[in-house]
Amino acid sequence: VIPPAEGFLSGLRALTEREGALLIFDEVMTGFRVALGGAQELYGVTPDLTTLGKVIGGGLPVGAYAGRADIMRHVAPAGPMYQAGTLSGNPLAMTAGLETLKVLRQPGVFQTLVARTERLCAGIGAAAEAAGVPVYQTRVGTMFCTYFTGTPVTNWETAAAADTQRFARFFRHMLEAGVYMAPSQFEAGFMSLAHTDALIEETIAAAEKAFAAL
Rank of each mutant, 00 (worst) to 15 (best):
P4W: 08
F8W: 12
L9D: 04
L12E: 01
A14S: 13
A14D: 09
R18P: 07
L23F: 08
L23A: 00
E27R: 09
E27D: 10
R33A: 08
G37C: 11
G38W: 06
G38K: 08
T46H: 12
T46E: 15
L49M: 14
T50C: 13
L52D: 02
V55G: 11
V55M: 14
I56G: 01
I56Y: 00
G57K: 07
G57I: 03
P61N: 04
A66L: 15
D70H: 15
D70C: 03
R73A: 15
V75F: 10
A76Y: 11
A76H: 11
P77S: 10
A78R: 13
G79L: 10
G85Y: 06
L87E: 01
A93K: 01
T95C: 10
G97W: 05
E99Q: 14
L101W: 12
K102Q: 09
L104N: 05
R105K: 13
P107H: 08
P107W: 04
V114Y: 08
R116N: 04
C121P: 07
A122R: 12
G123Q: 00
I124K: 07
G125T: 13
A126S: 10
A127G: 02
A128M: 08
E129K: 13
G132R: 05
T138D: 06
R139K: 12
G141S: 11
F144A: 04
C145T: 11
C145D: 00
Y147C: 04
F148D: 03
T149Y: 00
T149S: 08
G150H: 07
N155I: 01
W156C: 04
E157T: 15
A159D: 03
A160L: 15
A162M: 12
A162S: 15
T164C: 00
R166A: 09
A168P: 03
F170S: 07
L175K: 13
G189F: 06
G189T: 02
G189E: 05
S192K: 04
S192N: 09
L193W: 01
H195A: 07
L199Q: 14
L199C: 09
A206V: 11
K209S: 13
